[in-house]
Design a protein around this nucleic acid. Structure first.
Length: 132
DNA sequence: CGTATGACTTTTA
DNA sequence: GTAAAAGCCATAC
């Protein structure tokens, strides 16, 4: 695995989306996480956009394991969906079904509902340097 | 190889 | 506090 100039492993690549799913699956019902947090767990906080991209691929092409993609929201506590309000509405409905509440501006109390990933999750998705 | 795009984040007004 | 603009990383063209 190559590395970024910052010295962090390049998390994006083959298996990237699989790791994203692995992390998201750790989020219990009734809790939420942000793209940035998932990206941080994966090793690079700057790939938040790619996390979203991986989830988009998840919706387009189905996946065997159930991934609670609806528990992933942006840092503002909002649902980011652009150009597809249907999906955002669906996501909100799913979250409400799990007990997540939205305020008047469709925002979630991140401070209260954000899920903190245990170290074990970090270990599972940690990328090891090239054996070379 | 340079430009444009994207389920984002952070900073500035 | 909210709203808008810039920034970042990787992929697609």
């Amino acid at each position: 695995m190559k590395r970024t100039p910052d010295g962090e492993p390049r998390v994006v690549g083959p298996g990237f989306n699989a790791r994203v799913y692995a992390v998201v699956r750790h989020v219990p019902a009734g809790r939420v996480t942000t793209y940035g947090d998932v990206a941080t767990v994966l090793g690079s906080p700057r790939v938040a956009r790619h996390v979203g991209f991986a989830l988009a691929a998840l919706v387009s092409g189905r996946v065997e394991d159930p991934v609670p993609w609806h528990r992933v929201i942006n840092a503002q506590g909002r649902i980011s969906f652009k150009g597809d309000p249907i999906r955002s509405n669906h996501q909100r409905a799913l979250l409400e079904g799990e007990g997540v509440t939205f305020d008047d501006r469709d925002r979630v109390e991140l401070k209260r509902l954000r899920y903190v990933f245990p170290d074990a999750v970090y270990d599972e998705v940690t990328i090891e340097p090239d054996p070379a």
